Amino acid sequence: MRRILVIGIGAGDPEQLTLRAVRALNEADAFFLLDKGRAKRDLIDLREEILRQHVTRADYRVIEDRDPTRDRTTPTSDRTGAYTQGVDDWRQARADIYERLIRDELADGECGAFLVWGDPALYDSTLGILADVLARGTVSFEHEVIPGISAVSSLAARHRTGLNRVGGAVQITTGRRLASGFPAEADDVVVMLDAHQTFTDFADDPSLHIYWGAYLGTPDELLASGPLPEAAPRITALREEARARKGWIMDTYLLRRTAPE
């Protein structure tokens, strides 16, 4: 039986891998990396640096394939189902690649690994896609999930703050959902996958405080915080400059109702 490891590798710092993740890296015969193109080559380079730092065996293989292009022409606010269909089509294209890699690049009894940014359980498609591959019945494998330090945990640590306050709850959501309005039942909201700087929709609210981070755990890390009306223009400028310089950006932020004491 083939074996697959889904390894959470943290938000970008090779030193943030757990001891279990390091052990898992050394169990793998092959690592599957999906190339997102020249603009995002940094994501492949960081994964390869993790392998150089933590894998002690010399006989492992690195197998790269091209990540399928996702249709982003439909706005995320679309309510007709076109956005969801575009995501489903992209996932199925990825499933085709995963299926072929596992079937053709792993012999029976070998172990392959997918290195997942952050934590595999938080806004990542790898586990769902592997479930789709298994449901097809064309290739059999066992798989194990190794949790990682998420961008959410890294953001809170870098800003030296907790995610929730005494007796309170924290909600983790996406920029697309935040665009529908600030959650009524939450005072602490973590926002991920926000390509449109949705926090600017609330920039006139003096009761909100923001903790923002981009490229967390990497040499390019950017941090900013403060009352939202004051911090929003500064973060927007930082974000635009960084995206122009690198060609891509991954950022996460915490919106907190009422400024911290």
Results as ranks from 00 to 15, higher is better:
Asp65Met: 07
Asp204Val: 09
Gln197Cys: 07
His54Trp: 12
Val139Gly: 12
Leu19Pro: 00
Leu134Tyr: 00
His159Gly: 10
Gln16Leu: 12
Asp194Ala: 11
Ala24Val: 13
Asp45Gly: 04
Ser153Gly: 12
Arg47Val: 10
Gly167Glu: 12
Met1Arg: 11
Ala135Lys: 14
Arg70Tyr: 01
Tyr83Trp: 13
Pro183Thr: 12
Pro227Trp: 01
Glu185Asp: 15
Ile9Pro: 05
Glu142Ser: 08
Glu27Arg: 13
Thr138Met: 02
Ile129Tyr: 00
Thr76Ser: 02
Phe114Lys: 13
Asp220Ser: 06
Arg245Met: 09
Leu163Ser: 02
Pro120Arg: 10
Ala113Arg: 04
Ile4Trp: 05
Ala259Tyr: 01
Thr173Asn: 08
Val190Asn: 08
Ala244Lys: 09
Val152Cys: 08
Thr258Lys: 12
Arg3Leu: 07
Tyr98Pro: 09
Met192Tyr: 01
Val62Cys: 10
Pro227Val: 10
Ala156Glu: 08
Thr173Trp: 06
Leu19Trp: 02
Gln53Asp: 02
Ala95Met: 01
Trp90Cys: 11
Trp90Asn: 11
Asp188Met: 09
Met192Thr: 02
Leu34Glu: 10
Val190Pro: 04
Ala244Tyr: 03
Leu178Val: 07
Gly37Leu: 00
Ser225Gly: 03
Ser150Ala: 07
Ala135Asn: 14
Gly112Asp: 13
Ser225Ala: 14
Arg41Tyr: 08
Arg176Phe: 01
Arg239Ser: 15
Gly162Ile: 07
